[in-house]
């Protein structure tokens, strides 16, 4: 398996994080974290459980606020936007939640309809249906359109969750552990989907994972979150070209090496 090279515009930064800090009470989760994501690239964020990966992308999406530092998304300072401005920005951000977060009181169709009819009120019924069928087709799940989330498998839920964000044509995708809890074959399908989305929808993404197969085959660059800040950054090979046990641990576990 190999990922085709993708065009990345290094002088176009879509997410720019500078000296970010975040604590919960006495627990300091993120400290002076800086990171830039270029237009078109998949940036993989590696880190141990509870290291603050989800907190970081929630701050990017304006679901949490930082204590310190700056987070700019598509040129806008997220922490300083009004509710209205934040809503406008969020339409350009797709968020794939770890547990898929499908609305379980709604069918797949209604799940996809929800963001669409609430943000694009001028659409006709026909246009809405076409859009829903289009994104479902892109994630390969058109046949589930009238099913309930509880009837879907874990991998299908992930796909529908991704489809629900794609329906608004986001410029940025944030994937929170897209392959966690899935079997290897399904994980590969999700990995391919992430790459297809990157190409077809022209997205720039942050992909949170512990899964190095996912990291290797989706990410142009890898960032490792260590002690609340970006400890290492570079291509897959660059990042793992080290003896640092905190980094080698990931590698050895994923590629089954004796340590």
């Amino acid at each position: 398996m190999k990922k085709e090279p993708i065009r990345i515009e290094k002088n176009d930064v879509v997410i720019s994080i500078d000296d970010l800090g975040k604590s919960f009470g006495s627990l300091q989760v993120l400290r002076s974290l800086s990171l830039q994501v270029y237009k078109g690239e998949n940036m993989v964020l590696l880190g141990r459980s509870a290291s603050g990966k989800s907190v970081l992308i929630k701050i990017i999406a304006g679901l949490m606020f930082s204590d310190k530092g700056s987070v700019k998304v598509l040129g806008r300072e997220v922490g300083q936007l009004s509710t209205k401005e934040l809503d406008v920005l969020r339409l350009k951000i797709g968020f794939s939640f770890q547990g898929s977060a499908l609305y379980d009181s709604m069918t797949v169709r209604e799940n996809l309809e929800f963001p669409l009819i609430r943000n694009k009120r001028h659409l006709t019924r026909h246009e809405t249906d076409r859009a829903i069928e289009g994104v479902l087709q892109d994630v390969g799940l058109l046949e589930t359109i009238d099913q309930w989330p509880s009837e879907l498998s874990g991998g299908q839920k992930k796909r529908v969750g991704i489809a629900r964000t794609l329906i608004l044509r986001p410029e940025i995708m944030l994937y929170d552990e897209p392959t966690s809890g899935l079997d290897p074959v399904t994980s590969l399908e999700i990995i391919n989907l992430i790459n297809e989305v990157q190409k077809k929808y022209d997205t720039s993404s942050i992909i949170i994972t512990h899964d190095l197969t996912c990291a290797k085959f989706t990410g142009e660059r890898i960032a490792v979150l260590l002690n609340g800040t970006i400890g290492r950054l570079g291509s897959f090979d660059e990042v793992f070209d080290t003896d640092d046990p905190a980094i080698r641990g990931f590698y050895n576990y994923n590629f089954i090496k004796d340590s």
């Binding site: 609305y103 963001p115 629900r164």
Partner: peptide, 16 residues
């Protein structure tokens, strides 16, 4: 259950 399964966050990021 909507809160703990992040459905409320999902609504928020989709502009609702």
């Amino acid at each position: 259950s909507m809160k703990v399964t992040e459905q409320i966050d999902a609504m928020e990021v989709s502009g609702t």
